[in-house]
């Protein structure tokens, strides 16, 4: 994992006590036991003991298809270990901690942020790709000189290259709200108009006609979208979803979903 990602994860851990003061310990570790980031108050020995015990248990959890999370409720506190792709977040909270806050932090907010970091790290690598790809293009396709470039049809690799320069789709997390009525299209979700405006500013000529809606359980639907017209519903962090799509996503009102725009490259479209 890149240094920037480490810093971002450390920042999350550092902020944990601000968000939940009753959290006495928090750290992130890898599946193999390596510590990615931890708070200053927790001893390395304690972290090592937890990671060793968890990894040992994980190896023996084949009958339940691996261990994704562990919650130990004690008389005086609670320990949570939550899986986030290849990483685990461990938190120790006192009994006074609000279970809703702890749950939303450990199971929604931090995993989502880690997912975002995971997504932005490859994006940074992709930006370097055109340079590294160049020699491969030369190898696979006939040499394209400067003069040939004008007349020859655009090689496929070039169009792939142009896609790479599109910004990575921003990921927005919304709370689901049900939408129904005669005039409501059953295949269209409605998204905060400010968010839609930002997408359009970001992608300019590139058309955004569809969005990818994903639940925290991993169910996804690609569907049409419209901005929310009602100003009262804007800025509330909600996405209005018709019943049909909600059923497909197996989600409901009040649940969280991640929404990403599906961007069509304007150049490709013209071609």
């Amino acid at each position: 994992m890149a240094d920037d990602s480490h810093l971002a994860l450390q920042a999350i851990i550092d902020e944990f006590k601000t968000l939940s003061p009753e959290t006495t310990s928090s750290f992130i570790f890898k599946k193999n036991g390596g510590i990615i980031s931890s708070d200053q108050d927790t001893s390395k020995e304690a972290i090592k003991n937890l990671t060793d015990a968890f990894n040992e248990l994980s190896k023996k959890a084949q009958v339940i298809e691996g261990l994704e999370s562990l919650t130990i409720q004690g008389v005086e506190g609670q320990i949570n270990v939550t899986g986030m792709s290849s990483l685990y977040l461990a938190t120790v909270s006192s009994r006074a901690a609000d279970p809703k806050i702890v749950k939303s932090l450990t199971q929604v907010i931090v995993p989502t942020m880690v997912k975002l970091i995971d997504q932005t790290a490859p994006a940074a690598k992709e930006k370097e790709l055109p340079q590294t790809v160049k020699p491969i293009e030369k190898k696979d396709s006939p040499k394209v000189g400067k003069q040939e470039k004008k007349s020859a049809p655009k090689p496929k690799a070039m169009s792939v290259g142009s896609e790479m320069f599109l910004p990575r789709p921003p990921v927005n997390q919304f709370m689901v709200d049900r939408i129904s009525g005669f005039l409501v299209a059953s295949d269209t979700v409605r998204i905060d108009s400010n968010v839609v405006m930002k997408w359009r500013e970001l992608y300019g000529d590139n058309e955004i006609g569809w969005v990818n809606v994903e639940t925290l359980e991993g169910k996804t639907v690609v569907c049409r979208f419209k901005p929310i017209k009602d100003q009262r519903s804007n800025g509330k962090g909600i996405v209005q979803i018709p019943e049909k799509i909600m059923l497909r996503l197996q989600t409901g009102k009040g649940k969280l979903v991640i929404v990403k725009p599906v961007v069509e490259d304007a150049k490709e479209k013209k071609a």
């Binding site: 006495t24 298809e65 994704e68 999370s69 562990l70 130990i72 004690g74 005086e76």
Partner: peptide, 15 residues
């Protein structure tokens, strides 16, 4: 290790 007192319940989640 983390002094959370006597264990009341444990929940282990697989896939």
């Amino acid at each position: 290790q983390f002094n959370i007192g006597e264990t009341e319940s444990i929940l282990a989640e697989g896939t």
